Amino acid sequence: MEFRNLGASGMKVSAISYGNWLTHGSQVEEDAALACVRQALEEGITTFDTADVYANTAAETVLGKALSGQRRESLEILTKVFWPTGPKGPNDHGLSRKHIMEAIDGSLTRLQTDYVDLYQAHRFDHETPLEETMLAFADVVRAGKALYIGVSEWRAEEIRAAAELARELRVPLVSNQPQYNMLWRVIEAEVVPTCEELGIGQIVWSPIAQGVLTGKYRPGEPVPEGSRATDDKGGADMIGRWLRDDVLERVQLLRPIAEEAGLSPAQLAVAWVLQQPDVSSAIIGASRPEQVTENAKAAGVTLDASTLAAIDEALGDVVERDPAQTKSPRRSELFG
């Protein structure tokens, strides 16, 4: 396994992270989830990403159980706060001081740990002053409940404002967690240059576009049984945007490129992400241990310039690049 610094910080993370969104506590049974985590550890993965909202807190509980007994200092455990959890009362979401201070304690209990290595703002909160949010995060760090702080899916101007406050408060804002893959490149124009300037690294989610970049979804054919596209607990909603024939036809053109590089299509997708500027780690998910093994092999792979150019040519105009696609919901969008 390859290890990289998280942004400009001194903390190392595994280039491949294991995440349990849409799986633990939801899509797969607990025994399968535990087997996937064990396989991740076997592959040298030390960085594990979750969030309180995943399976309405159940994913954190499963991850805590799966990592129980491991040497804590040898792991990097990441979680997040923002989305509604529990009974979804008026203070059960967002980035208010009240919600952050209560949410971190709940996450630590479920994860069976005294601290998380990285505590992330899962979206930007339009209804809470940024100063309140950053001060609350600073207090979480000073209380020893988190070592570093990060954000997820924030726009460039939001990240810059948070970084300025973080410097004033002398707390380490080190990361952003965006969706990023060959098909979804919306962070490249604004977010990546801003983060590079500020010393903030990218921990990328969905490097395989929820499985579309494996090539198993074919144009004009039914989706495979048991695939993410058949999951009625959230997976099908997320992958739906890619299940267009124009996208699937382009993705099939990646197969010979992967073969030429000696990789599976999934490994090509993960290796591509890891080679992009400012990426510290790529988060993979899995419902079976063998998926972890396959994707982990992308660590340390270098794609040459001709391969990168061939990928761009194959995908053409189905790639989404509009920076306005990075956005956070307002309360009206959460609750109507």
Rank of each mutant, 00 (worst) to 15 (best):
P222F: 07
T214N: 12
G226C: 09
T214E: 10
G226M: 10
A209D: 01
G220W: 11
P219Y: 06
R228G: 01
D232I: 12
E221I: 01
L213G: 03
K216V: 02
T230E: 14
A209M: 00
K233E: 09
R218V: 03
T214W: 11
R218K: 15
D231M: 05
S227Q: 08
G220C: 08
G211H: 03
D231L: 02
P219L: 05
P222K: 12
E225C: 00
G234Q: 12
G211D: 03
R218Q: 15
E221S: 12
Y217K: 04
Q210C: 11
G211C: 01
D231A: 09
G226P: 12
R218I: 00
G211T: 01
R218N: 06
G235P: 05
G215K: 10
A229H: 12
D237K: 15
V212Y: 04
P222Q: 08
Y217A: 00
P222A: 05
A236L: 04
T214H: 10
G234W: 13
G226W: 11
T230R: 15
D232K: 15
D232G: 01
D237W: 13
G235D: 04
R228D: 01
D232R: 15
L213V: 01
E221F: 11
D237C: 00
D231W: 07
Q210M: 15
K233P: 02
P207M: 11
R218L: 14
A229L: 09
G235L: 06
R228S: 01
E221L: 13
I208M: 15
P219T: 07
G215S: 06
D232Y: 06
L213M: 06
D237H: 13
V223G: 03
A236V: 03
P219H: 09
E225D: 14
G234Y: 13
L213Y: 07
G211N: 03
A209E: 02
P222Y: 09
Y217S: 01
Y217R: 06
